[in-house]
Simulated assay, not measured.
Amino acid sequence: MGNRLSGKVAIVTGGNRGIGRAIAERLADEDAMVVVGDLRDDRSADSGSLERLTFMSLDVTKEASIRAFVDDVLQKFGRIDVLVNNAGMVIHKSIDEQTAEDWDRLMAVNLRGPFLMAKYVVPEMRRIGVGAIVNIGSVEGFMVNPWHTAYAATKAGVHGLTLGLSVDLGPDGIRCNTVCPGWIDTELNRAYVELHPDRSLVERELGQLHPVGRIGTPKEIANAVLWLASDESSFVSGEMIAVDGARTKKISLPSILDEEYRAKLTKPQS
């Protein structure tokens, strides 16, 4: 427990589980008053965690819901210092299979939601003269998995939104940055891995995609968000920070040339 965010009010959208929950709890660890906005009412966690978080209903696809949510936060806490736009979704479909409704749904959650959250939170940040917006982007804003055309488009859009907000809001004392996770050990990703008959092989090869030799944890994403939300990053704005174990930095090689490198990753450390 620390006090890097003491006296600050932080919003985390989509914060009921996974990376969002880890972010909410990490900010609360540093003495922030954290409001979790989510469609789900899934409060499964230890009682100590729940006591430090405030849960409010929020649908980031609906402007009226966002406006009411922000009003409720201000009524309860009187200020907003930090906004973490974490709510998101993904659809695995080829361009032939994707429908206009699929596209619109991803855009509404992943891109329109962060825009509207910023639209209604920024006036309050401007009033107090300081604020930090942290968007959760993705390494798929730089590189793309198969069947993720729409998802990648939304995350690239989030990166562009971050750039625009950082330029427009800098004079108001408001910073905006994006954290771009690599493969993270969440319930959603574990369920995806468990569909494969050889789970251990998939887990091993996923780890080998990252030069550090493993996949990441939600807490590691939360630590990056905490830094960007705190005054420790006071001169950092407009950045897309990949938290991906250098996955996006390694050039792909044919497997026959990559074997020695992969062997080094899996070799036990003395």
Rank of each mutant, 00 (worst) to 15 (best):
Leu195Phe: 10
Gly245Gln: 04
Asp59Lys: 03
Ile256Cys: 05
Leu58Ile: 02
Ala150Val: 15
Gly14Lys: 08
Asn135Ile: 05
Asn145Lys: 12
Val60Cys: 01
Gly48Phe: 01
Arg175Met: 10
Leu226Ala: 01
Ser233Gln: 08
Val193Asn: 09
Gly18Met: 09
Gln75Gly: 15
Trp227Asp: 05
Gly141Gln: 12
Ile133Ala: 01
Glu239Leu: 01
Ala87His: 01
Val121Gly: 00
Val34Trp: 01
Gly14Asn: 09
Ser230Ala: 14
Tyr151Ala: 06
Arg21Trp: 03
Val90Ile: 15
Val12Tyr: 03
Leu39Ile: 10
Met56Asp: 05
Gly157Pro: 02
Val73Pro: 01
Val82Pro: 03
Arg79His: 08
Arg67Ser: 14
Val90Ala: 15
Ala45Lys: 01
His196Pro: 05
Gly182Pro: 05
Gln208Pro: 02
Asp168His: 13
Leu201Thr: 10
Ala45Thr: 02
Leu226Phe: 02
Asp172Lys: 13
Thr154Met: 09
Glu101His: 14
Ser237Gly: 07
Gln75Glu: 15
Pro181Ile: 04
Arg43Pro: 00
Lys76Arg: 15
Leu169Ser: 09
Val109Pro: 02
Thr99Leu: 12
Ser138Pro: 03
Thr54Cys: 08
Asp41Tyr: 06
Ile136Cys: 03
Ala45Leu: 06
Ile241Tyr: 06
Thr266Ala: 14
Asp231Gly: 15
Met56Gln: 11
Ser270Glu: 13
Ala150Arg: 04
Lys93Ile: 12
Asp42Ala: 14
Asn85Trp: 04
Gly113Arg: 00
Leu111Lys: 04
Val179Cys: 05
Thr186Leu: 11
Gln75Met: 12
His148Trp: 09
Val34His: 05
Pro197Cys: 13
Asn86Trp: 04
Ile241Arg: 06
Glu97Gln: 15
Leu53Gly: 01
Met56Lys: 13
Met143Thr: 14
